[in-house]
């Protein structure tokens, strides 16, 4: 057999390898979810984590903030939270005899919006507008948010008591929604043996300089997506619109999100080229919260999404 040198698809070492390793030591047995969260961040999108309380949503957000050296703020959403509690207020400063703007917790690089669906829609939308615009308008004055600006929101499953479900339009603003799920038996055993992880995450040291992340995001946005791959993304989006299982199809924004997330996933795999595998890997996280089952109007189920992926031929 001739020994022709076949170029590998690439498994270039990159800056996120140690980040993922460290995160996986904190969040046990959830490598895929951690990776999705990292891809979401690298694609410049916001992340929604939905699951039952106590499964490590906050820990994940905290860990990423720590490891990436991002300035971190946490907002605990409650039913009585007001928009100003997020964006900030002007207070009278006696020494200067004038009003001074006190920035709210949203002026941080990584904002953890905990249990976002427990707040009223008015308060929710204050955050969501900040996410979309990258700036906050408060008392007639527009103030830019820091860069990078990354929101990890968590929400409890909507059937829980005392929740205001996010409307579709606002869900669309999250690049991905992931579920963490119960840990595996081994992971849970290790967790129980070693104690809670929250304290361990507090002890983490940043592995990235603050300026690194924007550079990486720019590099990923420039990753080559072949025409054939764009064909595939388009085919998936079109199929979501034509499949009777869903009430509405994916929006063009969702298509862009899918491509951006696939690029980040490919980069995390150390590749220069984006493959259909990358699209498939991120598709459930990108698409599921944007699609609604035709029966009853509830969120699309994981099996609906898998069926869609299995049905669309890879061009």
């Amino acid at each position: 057999m001739t020994t022709t040198k076949i170029p590998s698809l690439g498994s270039r070492p990159h800056a996120f390898v140690p980040v993922l390793d460290a995160a996986n030591r904190i969040i046990l047995g959830k490598a895929h979810e951690v990776r999705l969260a990292a891809a979401c961040l690298l694609a410049g999108g916001h992340l929604l984590i939905e699951d039952l309380p106590g499964l490590g949503k906050t820990t994940l957000a905290h860990t990423l903030a720590r490891l990436l050296g991002l300035q971190f703020a946490r907002i605990q959403f409650t039913a009585d939270l007001l928009p100003a509690d997020i964006t900030g207020v002007s207070v009278f400063d006696r020494s200067s005899a004038g009003f001074r703007f006190v920035p709210g917790p949203v002026f941080a690089q990584l904002v953890l919006a905990d249990e976002i669906n427990r707040a009223t829609p008015k308060t929710q939308s204050a955050l969501l507008e900040a996410m979309e615009e990258g700036q906050v308008t408060c008392e007639g004055e527009t103030r830019p948010l820091p860069s990078p600006f990354f929101v990890i929101a968590t929400q409890n499953p909507t059937h829980q008591i005392g929740t205001f479900p996010l409307p579709e339009s606002q869900l669309d603003r999250f690049l991905m929604r992931i579920e963490i799920g119960y840990p595996s038996r081994d992971a849970e055993r290790e967790l129980l043996a070693a104690g809670g992880r929250r304290t361990a995450s507090e002890a983490l040291t940043p592995l990235l300089a603050p300026a690194d992340l924007p550079a990486l995001q720019a590099e990923i946005a420039g990753l080559h997506a072949a025409p054939a791959l764009i064909d595939y993304v388009q085919a998936l989006v079109e199929a979501s619109r034509n499949t009777p299982a869903f009430r509405h199809g994916l929006s063009p924004r969702a298509g862009l999100a899918l491509l951006a997330a696939a690029r980040a996933w490919a980069w995390l795999a150390g590749r220069d080229l984006v493959l259909p595998d990358d699209v498939q890997a991120v598709f459930p996280a990108v698409a599921r919260h944007r699609l609604h089952s035709d029966q009853g109007g509830g969120p699309a189920t994981a099996s609906d999404i898998d069926a869609l992926l299995a049905a669309v031929a890879i061009p």
Binding site: H224, A226, L275
Partner: peptide, 22 residues
Amino acid sequence: RLFLLARYAPTPNLYLAALRAA
């Protein structure tokens, strides 16, 4: 591997000959 390169890489034509041979 060569098919993926020839289909998805920035310079697909570079791999066509090798793919054909493989």
